[in-house]
Design a protein around this nucleic acid. Structure first.
Lengths: 251, 251
DNA sequence: AAGTGGTCTAGACCACACC
DNA sequence: GTGTGGTCTAGACCACTTA
């Protein structure tokens, strides 16, 4: 049996089920499949895309994890009633502050510190490295349309990320990692809390004394599991929220 | 070809690949498979569990989504270097405040309001219901070991959740939904921000004026996509953080 | 070149919902 | 009963890493 790509020319590197997921996602986005309505049966989809049912199921897995569809055994597959907010989330996903806002607003960065040093014990633990392995210590103020937005201290091990310089740090570290180092980001673990404004928040974020601050402490990993960033980011309380999407795990 | 369950007696309702995922998860938990080390090859696992490679892959999919393993094409499957924190997260997953703390601490609830009324326009939008469909309006103070912990206002449509009473609300609404109504929770969408303490925060959470407050606004859906809760929860800034785990989406 | 994980198929049976 | 999605198989080829 022939396997799909027989006489297509430029379809390397993207698998069929991802491609199908993409096409169905587009149909949901464009309202061809409407919230609450049933999708075609898996059998029909298999015919439509000239593939097997298992491949259709893998495509649906993706959309299910994106909360775009809902599956009812014995009944059918439906566009999620709240596919609209799911699409919102998806479009606002991943890539750090720069990517998140670069369409809508003007991001600028003031580098407050850029150094290489040895890690503290806590940093070793968080980054899963040894005390002898040097790290970047980067402290930055990010502005959005000339207004202070977030104050970010990032610690990154040179064993994972190397070749940083002030110019890169002034722009987007994430895009450097993804586009220049060709590393793939895998996952992040965040702790989100509130705190009182401290000296630096007042100085740089222009908070008033006693203003609340939203703080995110996170570690970020590559696809291969290596942790490349441990950071603390502090936000003005009146400048946006963190949006988080959560699926109940399969145990 | 026979299909697995031929002469087992009590294995209904739990699929093989979930079962295998569970077993491998346990081995990771118990240190039989150590962080950074390779798992047995898919071929070997298929032999070990007397199943096909595809089923092993479905099991590994689960563990991958839990961030417990890392996959390297051409090389092997490895226990994630930070499988420890991944396990931490997993054990602290889902079920509302009551479940989250009932092991460790004493949760008590003061019901400040419990009423049925018609929804506001915003609530209709968030809950995806009509203006004519009544909702519960529940306002509660949760205490942890006699200390005020969170202040929670939940709006729930009667079209989805019914049969609530003050006694249930005083205990765990989540457990009522899951165990009595037999509904399955699917996903949640949260916005997390910081705010200044307001009157009620001062009155009930014992915040001082100008104390920061951590606020979570969320909608929670069932497996079938129906939204059953729109809520605002306010936390004292010195009583814990929100922990969030994020995987980079497959697009 | 050999071995790993990734993708895909065609066909089967199971669990569940709806009529 | 009929039809839906869920699970599972045995076998094949592809893409990638490692040597």
């Amino acid at each position: 049996m022939e396997v799909g790509l027989s006489f297509s020319v430029e379809v390397f590197n993207i698998s069929l089920y991802r491609e199908i997921a993409k096409k169905i996602r587009t149909k949901i986005k464009n309202g061809l499949y409407k919230p609450g309505e049933p999708l075609p049966r898996q059998k029909e989809l298999a015919l439509e895309y000239k593939t097997s049912r298992v491949t259709i199921q893998k495509a649906l897995d993706i959309l299910f994890n994106e909360n775009l569809i809902v599956r009812k055994q014995g009944s059918g597959t439906f566009v999620s009633p709240n596919s609209l907010s799911a699409l919102d989330i998806l479009s606002s996903q991943y890539g750090g502050t720069t990517k998140l806002f670069s369409d809508k607003a003007n991001v600028s960065t003031l580098v407050l510190n850029f150094a290489i040093r040895l890690p503290s014990l806590k940093e070793c633990e968080k980054l899963n490295i040894l005390e002898t392995m040097p790290v970047y210590d980067i402290y930055r103020l990010r502005n959005l349309d000339e207004e202070p937005y977030e104050l970010d201290r990032s610690i990154m091990p040179l064993s994972v990320i190397s070749g940083l310089n002030e110019n890169i740090v002034k722009n987007s570290i994430f895009s450097f990692i993804q586009n220049k180092l060709n590393l793939e980001i895998g996952s992040s673990l965040r702790k989100i809390g509130a705190d009182k404004a401290k000296q630096d928040d007042i100085k740089y974020l222009k908070c008033k004394p006693n203003d609340p601050v939203l703080q995110i402490s996170q570690t970020v990993s590559l696809k291969d599991g290596r942790i490349f960033e441990y950071s603390h980011t502090r936000h003005r309380y009146d400048k946006g929220n963190i949006v988080v999407f959560n699926k109940v795990p399969i145990l």
